[in-house]
């Protein structure tokens, strides 16, 4: 690969990274897993003047649950770490469903969840999952830290609200009040392909009833779509067929797909609806089995 000329920095603390960002006039990019950034630099679609490699910063590769159930993912936690995580499998069903279908095994070994969120690709799987879970990121800048909800973080294709001198150091999934349930379905032409359609449905159940729900859509709009109305329609239902039809319909309406070589807009809307129904039915079935 023959990218444009760039300066390479490898700070050993977050503060150093922020100082470098602050001095770079918005011309710097953070390098975590590099699985999106490096290909874009190879094609010269991206030509940052400076690359700030955070892989040498200790203590960012974690993922764990706090005592209250809050789930935290550090900026250097790889997709593969999540795919293999027993904690994730036990406590985060939507994430556990998504982890094995993010990109391909090679990308998963290196790529990071936080990097994927910051890359803000409308085809990114994690953003819809986090949106469905009401997740957020912690951004750190010269003036300290702030939390940004993932549904607010992404404000366009490959665009976030992060300031030039801010670095996302952690992603956070809030603790559930009820029992967590959920799933992620992705239609792709081949392993490693971007999603033709991806749907994340997360729910908190009290008994057989939905107490809280979230739906995120991948690849069917200029940015990750938060199908809040569809999700809201599920609250108070027991995920019966009629409730799922309503939510499926609303989610399909929330989607803003384009026709392209992966499929027509109508087809993509249809798949969104189908996947909402399928995940909902699966949650409902597993609830019954547990009961």
């Amino acid at each position: 690969m023959y990218p444009s000329r760039f300066r390479y920095e490898a700070p050993s603390t977050v503060d150093e990274a922020i100082a470098l960002l602050a001095g770079a006039n918005g011309e710097a990019k953070i390098l975590a897993g590099g699985q999106s950034l490096i290909p874009m630099m190879k094609l010269r679609f991206a030509a940052p003047a400076m690359l700030i490699d955070i892989n040498g910063i200790a203590g960012l590769d974690y993922h764990h649950s706090d005592a209250d159930g809050t789930f935290r993912i550090g900026a250097l936690c790889r997709h593969a770490d999540l795919e293999k995580s027993a904690t994730l499998a036990a406590s985060q069903p939507t994430m556990a469903a998504a982890a094995p279908v993010v990109a391909d095994p090679l990308v998963r070994t290196r790529g990071t969840l936080v990097g994927s969120l910051c890359h803000a690709d409308p085809q990114g799987d994690w953003a819809s999952v986090m949106v469905s879970l009401g997740g957020s990121i912690v951004a750190q800048g010269p003036n300290g830290r702030r939390a940004v909800a993932v549904s607010d973080l992404i404000d366009g294709p490959f665009q976030t609200v992060l300031a030039d001198d801010e670095i996302a150091i952690e992603a956070v999934v809030p603790a559930a009040i009820g029992t967590r349930a959920g799933g992620y379905l992705k239609l792709e032409r081949r392993v490693g392909d971007f999603a033709t359609v991806g749907v994340a449905v997360s729910a908190e159940m009290s008994g057989a009833t939905v107490s809280q729900a979230g739906i995120g859509l991948t690849g069917v709009g200029p940015a990750t779509i938060n199908a809040a109305e569809a999700a809201g329609s599920l609250v108070g239902t027991s995920l019966d067929a009629e409730a799922l039809d309503t939510a499926a319909q609303l989610a399909a309406e929330a989607a803003q797909p384009r026709s392209d070589h992966r499929g027509s807009a109508d087809y993509k809307r249809h798949v969104v609806a189908t996947f909402v129904r399928r995940i909902g039915a699966q949650i409902q079935r597993s609830g019954q089995e547990a009961a």
């Binding site: 032409r189 384009r258 392209d260 992966r262 027509s264 249809h270």
Partner: peptide, 25 residues
């Protein structure tokens, strides 16, 4: 035989051509 073509054939009951230009909006 992409899924959307197969789906269109099943639901609309007609042949599906994939010749260029690819459909765009």
């Amino acid at each position: 035989l992409l899924p959307d073509r197969v789906h269109e054939a099943i639901t609309a009951g007609h042949d599906v051509s994939g010749a260029p230009p690819v459909k765009t909006e």
